[in-house]
Design a protein around this nucleic acid. Structure first.
Lengths: 362, 362
DNA sequence: CATTGATATGAATCCTACG
DNA sequence: ACGTAGGATTCATATCAAT
């Protein structure tokens, strides 16, 4: 069994399942997995001008049949579930050839699907023969370890990155080409399925915090490691092929850690400490007997006890939240934004008092 | 067992699996299926202003667990496979809650996936609580009955509709709202999951020919029937709920058949009849012993026999296609466009001779 | 009539820290 | 583990009223 501290920010050369078995349980915050797709391609595919299209024809993508592929995936996904912390999440990318096997197995293992992200490619490989729609998408399934996991999702960070709108499950990202694509001395691509960094940036920024441990058990050229380093996360890579291990280590060594900004440190998603009404009363910022008003003073109530409960017209005692809901005839309620109090002849929001409390005492 | 002619362009009220069993084998050209998604929602979901979101809470979407759902889907998908013609195709739509069950079962039943289409929604329901990425996509899996099916795909029709570019597997289509959404007298939506007609238009136009029989075994409000009628295809609907049956019949009666155009009749995808070299020789348009040249006359060969085989420099006999490939040092080859023959002192493309043959004899 | 603004709503696995 | 209270949360489009 590995000591987790000794394998952090390293690439382990070895078989995915064998190496996963050596990682301690409940030690990994997030996993990204880009397994073999089992493309089941056969023969050569020619472009219309007669040249040969270089698709995925690697030995690592060969399986005897779907059932073998299922067994393989069940094995490594079980180990992934074991090594994840209880609130950890896993992302698995695939295409129509394999993603239905992956999704089915994930559900059978009681992973809980949070989203299925569509990687929509503006520049996909066209369908050379005109036999189908251009296959312009891959799917990334995002799951928590279990239904009850309190997973990390940096909602406001992603909303801000997305120009102030909720980020959707469809991501338009170009395939990995140009200078980002790793090539050997002859200019030949080193790996057939290198993923674009933008894809991993979205994944890492949305589902991890600074300092988290990200595991990629099909490391390839190390995109996950490089992006994790850039964004001040820790990574662990597992990769079977020595050639890829060497390439990824060099790539990560050449990667610079970015200056920490509000997206990287996730400050937009830090939740302020909770403040109960009783704390304001305890500090004398509010008092039992104080009258609370809504903004236009058309509604009022009185603080009745040290917990901050107020009275309703029928005499019931209840929280500032329930009471604000009652007076607005709504089922929800945020009393902090509804109620005001008169202090020194000014109408002051109790939310303002809460902010003062946080500044002074937290 | 139904007589297929008697159920064409009708809506059958009844249980999906029971009614499918009464449809003759190998009788249906295309199936569109929009099964229950088994959403597994619970409780109420409130918008931030406090009103309740009206999601899918119909009895037809309730199952005990995933295994029951799997068994249900296996049953109806098996019947679908039986009723499809050998070259028939099926489209099944779903969301992340169920589509991995569907895709897995389809593959286990030896359906052959042709594409997974992403229905990308510009106007999805937002995530009210900020807990995930906005779920902005559904998936439609398109399969042929078997790997060897010679399925219909109107490639050029779809390319033309798409402004001259190959149509991709990602479709941007808005959800069904406004006047297209069927409502009752009180203005309430009749069905919780009515699909947009644009979606079905793409499906019907791409994968069927005029006059084909389209089956929808979860007919709902009859979008499939209405679109099929508009586009001069035949439909059969199966629907359990009498309310939906009545609504769909009225809807289809009010649907007008569109004037047949080049998209509806699929003329862009009509393939010219194949003409063997032997036919041109038989009709005396070419003769054994004729010399064939490439366009600049730098390469030549001679027709050696009645099948139209020509000789290579090494003496081998081979087809016009293989030989044109040989001289261009390519693995592919279209001999019709490469070779010319001298007739009445003019260099004439053998492709021109083929066109003359088609005009005269086909 | 054109424009602006308020309101309604759609396949949704939609909260969580603390006691 | 479970109940409770604190507290956070939406986008595109259609319709209709008001200007």
């Amino acid at each position: 069994m590995y000591n987790i501290k000794e394998i952090i920010n390293t690439v382990i050369e070895g078989d995915t399942i064998e190496e996963l078995k050596k990682i301690p349980s409940n030690s990994i915050d997030m996993i990204f997995a880009d397994p073999p797709y089992f493309m089941q391609t056969s023969g050569v595919l020619l472009r219309s001008e007669g040249t040969e299209f270089q698709g995925v024809d690697d030995d690592w993508d060969k399986f005897n049949n779907l059932k073998h592929y299922d067994a393989f995936c069940t094995n490594w996904l079980k180990e992934c579930q074991r090594v994840l912390t209880k609130d950890g999440t896993i992302w698995v990318i695939g295409s129509f050839q394999n993603i239905y096997r992956i999704g089915y197995i994930l559900q059978d293992l009681d992973f809980w699907i949070l989203n299925d992200i569509v990687w929509s490619k503006p520049n996909p490989v066209p369908n050379f023969r005109g036999t189908r729609f251009t296959n312009a998408n891959e799917t990334i399934i995002w799951c928590s370890k279990s239904k009850s996991s309190k997973y990390t999702f940096n909602y406001k960070t992603m909303k801000s990155i997305n120009g102030g709108k909720q980020m959707k499950s469809v991501w338009d990202i170009g395939i990995c080409i140009g200078s980002e694509r790793l090539k050997d001395e002859d200019g030949k691509k080193i790996h057939n399925t290198q993923k674009p960094e933008k894809l991993l940036e979205n994944i890492v920024l949305s589902s991890t915090k600074m300092g988290d441990i990200v595991l990629d058990c099909f490391f390839g050229t190390g995109t996950t490691g490089s992006v994790s380093k850039k964004l001040s996360r820790n990574f662990i890579g597992i990769e079977k092929e020595k050639e890829y291990v060497d390439v990824s280590i060099e790539r990560i060594n050449n990667t610079k850690i970015l200056p920490v900004d509000e997206y990287i440190n996730g400050e937009l998603d830090i939740k302020p400490k909770r403040v109960p009404m009783s704390s304001l009363i305890e500090k004398g910022m509010l008092n039992i007997g104080d009258t609370l008003y809504n903004k236009d003073k058309s509604v009022k109530t009185v603080i009745k006890d040290e917990t901050g409960y107020v009275d309703l017209p029928n005499g019931d005692l209840t929280s500032i939240h329930k009471s604000s809901g009652f007076f607005q005839n709504k089922t929800n309620h945020n009393g902090w934004e509804y109620w005001y109090v008169v202090q020194e002849n000014n109408l002051v929001s109790i939310n303002t008092l809460r902010e003062r409390y946080r500044e002074k005492y937290l």
